[in-house]
Design a protein around this nucleic acid. Structure first.
Lengths: 140, 140
DNA sequence: CTCAAAACCTTAGTTTCCTAAGTATAGGCT
DNA sequence: AGCCTATACTTAGGAAACTAAGGTTTTGAG
């Protein structure tokens, strides 16, 4: 290794700072941190989504995902519909109420993204994304 | 925003995967996740370290850091010595026992780092580190 | 039909983190 | 000296996140 910097530590540190920042989001008084993150994921993803996808996206164990989604369902953020074709799977659907937060959530994320990437050249961001993708491949 | 990729999500996702990976480290059966992370930090840092530094590094509240360090002390991983000059501060010292894990911890980290950066050009890593540093500045 | 695997759930316990309110010390400022 | 604010850390209590181990039901392959 030539670098004296540790990529793992850098990434973790930035991620922790981000968690802090995201906890200050406006909608946060109506849902927990994890619930907010998952809601944002649901709102920006297209196509059918299942518990499986949540587990993969956030590196969660099935039981953790179950508990989290159950809580979101109880809070009225999502519904879970049986999937025709495979009775084991339940499709996750964002509720009407949660769709009302959509604008705010997207706005918050957009603002964070702009703040985060301020002063960073486009080509550097391209490299950054490429490196992260490679790293995710490397350890998966 | 020109990118359709979200830097925040990318970083969080990689960080989660890393946490999983690090939890599988060999010494991990003798300490919890957070304890292991802090121990690694202590072992690779030079100069006096205080609770303050742990809070900053991991974006923790004082009470969280207190609890974590108290647990590490109880598990025999660290000691806390009164600081001459400022009676409010207590210096964190890695115990003899924990120093025994040193080689293993450093080895684990080095291996992860090599695995993580495999196939990524040196100059891309330079950009990567620069971008992360800028992002940390941007949101602090 | 049988059986392994997949998708998800349940339970019970641990770990991590937070808020809110404290103690004690330090370093001003008048 | 006395007062005030900030700093460093602590305590108490609770919420959130995670884990391991063991279900259920359904699927799909042999």
């Amino acid at each position: 290794m030539i670098h004296n910097k540790h990529a793992a530590r850098y990434v973790s540190k930035l991620s922790n700072k981000l968690r802090r920042r995201i906890d200050a989001f406006s909608c946060r008084d109506r849902m927990s941190g994890a619930e907010g993150r998952v809601l944002h994921f649901l709102l920006t993803q297209q196509g059918d989504l299942f518990q499986n996808d949540i587990e993969e996206e956030y590196s969660l164990r099935p039981s953790t995902a179950t508990e989290l989604l159950k809580k979101m369902e109880h809070h009225g953020l999502i519904r879970r519909e049986p999937m025709s074709g495979d009775a084991r799977m339940k499709r996750i659907v964002v509720s009407e109420e949660a769709l009302g937060y959509r604008q705010q959530v997207l706005q918050d994320i957009l603002q964070l993204e702009e703040e985060l990437t301020r002063g960073i050249p486009e080509k550097d961001l391209d490299v950054f994304f490429r490196v992260i993708e490679q790293m995710m491949d490397n350890i998966s």
